[in-house]
Nucleic acid binder design. Structure first.
Length: 401
RNA sequence: GGUGGAGUAGCGAAGCGGUCAAACGCAGCAGACUGUAAAUCUGCCCUCUUAGAGUUCGAUGGUUCGAAUCCAUCCUCCACCA
């Protein structure tokens, strides 16, 4: 690939790409010196599960690695320990050192499902932030003005709406920018919501006498509800470490309109292929369910394995299309004594409260051995192998003991 | 430092002495319809041994036959002015 082709390849799927010319020069220089560029990516250690939303960016990082560059994966443990009050999660709790360490570990395990560990440098920002004295912080803050900060979209909106903005929130982008200086990033990658922070890194590097990093943003994809950004706190995410069936099932529940994005950004299908398939579905040539099955299987295959993907798909059809039972049902161990149905359901872990169990029974969502139950006051005598089904996806099998 | 305002179920938001476990919307769950898509309709949605009972409306204490609603103190938050 020549330089222009490289640039095209590397900027595919990007929303913002700041300073293409800079990157071109950097690439030329790096090539001449026989080394790769340093691509920075920051991760928040408060949510230890990597989900498909992260994969959008990770895919890109992997492409950089495949082109010989190094990914500097920064775990924001320092910032995590302070607790970020930004956005709507105003009461985000500060993490302890232990939690951060645990989260960071699971982060790394999951991240290497996508990234090449050989070409990844994992850094914790406490490494330098922890050492800073208060006067270092003051010197750092002197580089940026309030007006600059208010340029950030969500700050200006919140300010205009009379919503609180904490000073710490001003510090966050600054810390992130400082990270860029410390690792001498050539390019920083992030979601579109990160644009301001990434650009601030560029500014700060300039002020501090470094060649400024290029900036690339990738879209934030919507989660399972099809509306909100995929995130753990909204519980609309698909984690890369989830069991195959779970992963498959979640993907099948994605709204149709969204699946094209998933094909493009998670599976990195070329745009024209995605469009071609979209057209087939639109014309009725391909059933949307079949397209989604393809998507779900491909994702499971990528993160878990081909065999698992296939069996997840088969089982899914069995359970939901043919309304059969899954081949593995969680067991509840019970004594052979009469027990109230509601209590049984709680014990089996099918529901959290009696009331919820009652609701399900009254609404005809509960079956014992394939027989619909409608009396919430029913007493059950547990039998070995008895199967309780609650709703579409709740199953429990009784084991006497 | 001063002035004004707010704290109600997962979120948003009514209620401002009894008919309040608390309107309504969102989210969630289930049923019907389906492709575990969307849309739609119906029901549920604090807990429990549910024709009933028990705990709730920032906290504590009070007034009252009776308080989410009134009073006092406290805590938390916000805006404006300085």
């Amino acid at each position: 690939m020549n330089i222009e082709q490289q640039l095209d390849f590397l900027s595919a799927r990007a929303v913002d790409f700041i300073a293409r010319d800079d990157l071109k020069k950097k690439l030329e220089k790096a090539a001449a010196e026989g080394r790769g560029l340093r691509i920075k990516y920051g991760a928040d250690p408060s949510a230890p599960d990597i989900h498909l939303g992260h994969v959008v960016g990770l895919n890109k990082l992997r492409e950089f690695q495949d082109m010989g560059h190094t990914v500097v994966f920064i775990i924001g443990d320092f910032t995590g320990m302070i607790g970020d009050p930004s956005g709507r999660s105003q009461t985000r709790k500060p993490l302890t050192k232990e939690q951060v360490a645990i989260n960071a570990k699971s982060y790394q395990e999951q991240v290497f499902k996508i990234l090449d560990p050989e070409k990844t440098e994992v850094r914790f920002n406490s490494e330098w932030c922890g050492k800073m004295k208060f006067d270092d912080v003051i010197r750092l803050t002197a580089h940026v003005t309030v007006a600059q900060m208010l340029a950030r979209d969500d700050f200006s909106k919140r300010y205009a709406a009379n919503q609180p903005i904490s000073i710490v929130e001003f510090l966050y982008p600054l810390v992130q920018a400082y990270d860029s200086v410390m690792v001498e990033a050539d390019l920083e990658l992030g979601g579109t919501d990160q644009l301001f922070n990434l650009l601030l890194g560029r500014e700060l590097q300039k002020v501090m006498g470094q060649p400024p990093q290029c900036v690339m943003t990738l879209p934030l994809i919507e989660g399972l509800d099809g509306v909100q950004k995929m995130s753990k706190s909204l519980n609309n995410y698909v984690g890369v470490a989830e069991p195959a069936r779970e992963m498959y099932g979640k993907l099948m529940s994605v709204p149709d309109d969204l699946m094209w994005k998933y094909f493009e950004y998670i599976l990195c299908w070329p745009k024209d292929e995605v469009q071609a398939m979209h057209a087939k579905v639109a014309s009725g040539e391909l059933h949307p369910r079949a397209a989604k099955d393809m998507l779900a299987q491909a994702v499971v295959k990528r993160f878990i394995g081909e065999a698992e993907a296939q069996s997840a798909s088969e089982e899914f059809t069995r359970i939901f299309a043919q309304k059969a039972l899954p081949d593995e049902i969680p067991e509840v161990v019970l004594p052979a004594e009469e027990i109230g149905l509601l209590v049984l359901m709680v014990q089996a872990g099918l529901v959290k409260t009696n009331g919820e169990a009652r609701r399900l029974v009254t609404q005809g969502a509960v079956k014992i051995n394939d027989e619909k139950i409608s009396d919430p006051r029913m007493q059950v005598v547990p039998e070995d192998g008895m199967v309780i089904r609650s709703g579409k996806r709740g199953f429990a099998k009784v084991k006497l003991g």
